[in-house]
Design a protein around this nucleic acid. Structure first.
Length: 377
RNA sequence: GGGUAGAUACCGAAGCGGUCAAACGGGGCAGACUGUAAAUCUGCUGGGUAACACCCUACGGAGGUUCAAAUCCUUCUCUACCCA
């Protein structure tokens, strides 16, 4: 059984479950650190194990360009290549359709990219993306989709959504007609689009359910829309999505976004925020987010987060990490990344615990109160 | 003792009669970041004012020329280098 639902909260849609793959079991809700190019930036694989990251992301577009399918295949797929024996989920490149919009063209049959590295042209089709993900060997592969920008008008969004549905069907056929080339099972998730229009969202969700993927993702959110809108779409989505399959909210988000979405019944999250912001000097703590460069930490001997049990936080002061950032020392990026990932993983771990305890909603309220209140001080 | 080149904001460094509270770096102070083209990007950095306007103090010191001086002249002080 790929997904098993362990418990659903009595007073909300929050739930605990587990996803079984050949590379290990993932307890949900889970946060997946993003390792776009076969590395969670500034963090070693050894450290990810110590942090107890259960699954990480890779990106089809980036890995296809570098090192390329030939190298990836020759080196035995991404698990072997990067020496990571736990589960990997790969995004399809659908997000790059959105973020690299200046250098791509969308056709009915696929997307033509100009490489952001050397300008060369490449064609991604639903089928080619499945094939590349077979070569990467990810445990969970995402379908190629068009992540529409925000804002987008109704007719554009509708057309875009119809294209994504077409691609989703083709992706599933390609998936069913091909096999894993390494010795492990692979799964495929669909990605719901439909922009900020409830009727389009509902239509898409229904069609995606009919295609019968192994799991269902909500895409096209956290692209610049107001948070309330994101919650609204998430909420109607989880009302429709089947309970017996994992639900993945792509690209989300802030600690608050994650807790709110868990309450709406989301199981899986990924976001660059903990790692990117770490490299840019922002730390997440139980007392809110902080900018480690701020002068007020110059003499601050306290640990990074007094309430978080993790290597970076237990061993280093705010003053020391500030010094590393001010001095442009590479260790600063590493420790901040370690810290933020520990924070995010702890966040979902606590959420799981409290859903099982039956007090998630109250715990969440108190947690966020503390998190947000300190930010205002 | 003689000569030459300099002295500009926290530091370095442009500007060489009005468009200069003064380019550009660095440093400092803040902010942003949501399926990673990001160890990136943005703003502020003489004082007063919530803020535009405006006012005040400012380009080593003092004095002068001019409607107008960081910019021209005189002189003083200091710095670097060269010659005795």
């Amino acid at each position: 059984m790929f997904f098993e639902l362990t418990k659903t909260s009595e007073s909300s849609k929050a739930r605990v479950g587990s996803i079984s793959t050949d590379h290990g079991i993932i307890e949900t809700p889970i946060f997946m650190p993003v390792g776009t190019a076969g590395t969670v930036k500034a963090v070693e694989q050894r450290e990810l194990i110590e942090l107890d990251a259960k699954i990480i992301l890779g990106n089809t577009y980036h890995l296809y360009l570098r090192p390329g399918n030939e190298v990836m295949h020759a080196l035995g797929g991404l698990h072997r290549f990067m020496n990571w024996n736990r589960p990997i989920l790969t995004d399809s490149g659908g997000y790059q359709v959105f973020s690299l919009n200046e250098i791509r063209k969308i056709y009915q049959y696929g997307v033509e990219f100009r490489s952001h590295i050397d300008g060369s042209k490449h064609l991604f089709t639903p089928e080619s993306v499945v094939n590349t993900q077979r070569i990467i060997g990810s445990d969970i592969m995402m379908v190629l989709d068009e992540c529409a920008p925000y804002p987008a008008d109704y007719s554009y969004t509708k057309k875009s959504m119809e294209l994504s549905i077409k691609w989703a069907k083709e992706s599933r056929i390609s998936f069913n007609n091909t096999a894993s080339i390494y010795n492990h099972q692979q799964y495929q998730f669909g990605i719901a689009q439909g922009g900020m229009y409830n009727d389009l969202r509902k239509e898409y969700l229904q069609q995606m359910i009919d295609i019968d993927f192994d799991g269902n993702a909500i895409g096209g959110l956290s692209v610049g829309e107001p948070t309330e809108l994101m919650y609204e779409i998430t909420d109607i989505s989880t009302d429709i999505l089947p309970k017996d399959k994992p639900r993945y909210l792509m690209g989300v988000g802030t600690p608050e976004n994650i807790l709110q979405s868990i309450e709406m019944g989301i199981d899986m999250f990924d976001c660059v925020m903990p790692t990117r912001n770490a490299r840019n000097g922002q730390l997440f703590t139980t007392n809110g987010k902080i900018n480690i460069r701020n002068a007020k930490y110059k003499f601050e001997e306290k640990p990074l987060d007094e309430n978080l049990d993790s290597y970076a936080s237990n061993n280093f002061s705010l003053a020391y990490l500030r010094h590393l950032f001010i001095s442009d020392e590479i260790l600063g990026l590493q420790l901040a990344s370690l810290h933020n990932i520990a924070f995010y993983l702890n966040l979902v771990k606590e959420a799981r615990k409290h859903i099982l305890n039956g007090d998630f909603e109250l715990w969440k309220k108190n947690y966020l109160e503390n998190y947000n209140q300190s930010n205002k001080l």
